[in-house]
């Protein structure tokens, strides 16, 4: 397998992870999506987790609504309070649109990218994963590593813990661990059961 092929594969993974962190909608979150999702985590050996998610989905009266309520509670406005806002700046600057968000946007621009008009804030987890996908596609491994180290991992680490601790639905617990797996520096020594 060529390095270019590998980069394309990694790019697809980032893009898929970004999709998983979009607000659940029947447009994309349907049976095909879940089949791909179960297969993917099965490849990673997380079959039990796949079964757990499938059980939660199949056993629900309205599985999509359950995930929408969970997404809203975890990431938008929740009761008793929003668990884990998916914006880097919240963890670094204790605010939306802090300096960290500005630095993130500046990094995108340095690499020749920019935000679309319809986009969320630049430091939203979805956009950071989309950006990583674009860097991987361009085989900018140095850029990818620099971004992960300076602008992704410093906040994702905290976000990850909050989701693991606060999630009620297994889907998001698994998704953030997938993201963790694919963004964590190997030299730290990967601990499969860290969470």
């Amino acid at each position: 397998m060529s390095p270019a092929d590998t980069s394309q594969d990694i790019s697809r993974v980032y893009r898929f992870l970004a999709q998983c962190m979009e607000y659940p909608d029947s447009e994309w979150m349907h049976d095909d999506f879940f089949n791909v999702f179960y297969n993917f985590i099965g490849t990673l050996g997380a079959t039990d987790e796949g079964v757990e998610i499938k059980r939660a989905i199949d056993g629900a009266k309205d599985a999509l609504e359950d995930l929408q309520v969970e997404y809203t509670r975890l990431f938008i406005n929740g009761v008793p309070h929003v668990i884990a806002p998916p914006f880097g700046s919240v963890y670094i600057d204790q605010s939306l649109q802090g300096t960290f968000a500005g630095n993130t946007l500046a990094f995108y621009r340095e690499k020749g990218f920019d935000m679309e008009k319809h986009a969320d804030l630049p430091d939203h987890l979805v956009h950071e994963l989309e950006f990583l996908a674009l860097l991987a596609e361009e085989q900018d491994h140095a850029g990818e590593e620099e971004f992960l180290q300076k602008l992704f991992r410093p906040w994702f680490r905290k976000f990850h813990i909050r989701v693991i601790d606060g999630a009620h639905h297994p889907f998001y617990r698994v998704v953030v661990q997938l993201i963790d797996l694919f963004t964590k520096e190997e030299k730290d020594g990967f601990q499969p059961n860290e969470a």
Binding site: V13, Q19, N39, F113, E116, H127, L134
Partner: peptide
């Protein structure tokens, strides 16, 4: 990786919030 990743793109929306900028870096 290849076997697992190829199907992923089939369930991903085409829209992305980040895209290549036509202009020079700002």
């Amino acid at each position: 990786l290849a076997a697992a990743s190829v199907p992923l793109s089939k369930v991903v929306s085409a829209n992305s919030g980040v895209s290549k900028s036509a202009l020079d870096a700002k």
